[in-house]
C-alpha cells in the first residue's frame, strides 16, 4: 500500500488501486464516506442555522470545527446545498454591508419556519435510521 503525507494540509493519502483515502481523527475516510457525508450535510446546515444566522464562510468553519475535522466542506459542496435549501424555502438569505475595515458585503443565511419543521422531521428520521443501521451492524449471527 502506497501512501504520502501532505504536511501542508495535514493529511495522509493512502493509494489503493487509485482510490484516495484521507485520515480524519485516525480513521481512513474514502469515497464511500464522502457519499455518506453528502447525504447528511443538509441536516447539519439546517441545524447550525437554527442556532444562528451565518454566512457561507462561517458555515464551513463551524462545521469543520464542531465535527473535529470530519466535515471539511468545500465551497463547491456548500453553496449548491444552500441554493437547494433556499429554493425549497427552508432557508432565506440577506445581504449585509460589511462593518469591518474591508467593508465586504456578507450574505447571511437564516432558517425559515418551514426549515425548522423540516429539521425536526429530518432529525427524527435520522435517529430512527441510525438506530436501525447500528442494530444491523452489531449483528453477530443470524
Amino acid at each position: 500500500m502506497d501512501f504520502f503525507v501532505d504536511f501542508f494540509h495535514n493529511k495522509v493519502y493512502y493509494i489503493l488501486s487509485n482510490t484516495k483515502y484521507i485520515v480524519i481523527r485516525g480513521v481512513l475516510m474514502n469515497e464511500v464516506s464522502k457519499q455518506l457525508k453528502k447525504g447528511v450535510i443538509e441536516i447539519l446546515v439546517l441545524k447550525i442555522l437554527s442556532l444562528e444566522n451565518l454566512y457561507g464562510y462561517q458555515i464551513i468553519q463551524l462545521l469543520d470545527e464542531k465535527s473535529e475535522g470530519t466535515f471539511k466542506m468545500k465551497e463547491g459542496t456548500l453553496y449548491p446545498i444552500l441554493y437547494r435549501l433556499e429554493d425549497s424555502k427552508l432557508i432565506e438569505s440577506y445581504w449585509e454591508a460589511g462593518t469591518e475595515k474591508r467593508g465586504v458585503p456578507r450574505k447571511y443565511y437564516r432558517i425559515t419556519e418551514a426549515g425548522r419543521q423540516q429539521l425536526l422531521d429530518m432529525q427524527q428520521e435520522w435517529y430512527v435510521m441510525a438506530d436501525s443501521i447500528n442494530l444491523i451492524l452489531r449483528m453477530e449471527g443470524v
Binding site: 454566512y55 457561507g56 464562510y57 469591518e100
Partner: peptide, 27 residues
C-alpha cells in the same frame, strides 16, 4: 449566483488569511 457568492466568500476568507493561501487551499 455562484459568482456573487464566491466573490463574497473569498473576500471574507481573505479578511482572515493570506489571499494566495486561500486560493491555494481552494484548489
Amino acid at each position: 449566483r455562484i459568482e456573487k457568492d464566491l466573490i463574497a466568500h473569498i473576500n471574507e476568507a481573505c479578511a482572515q488569511g493570506d489571499e494566495a493561501d486561500i486560493l491555494d487551499r481552494m484548489g
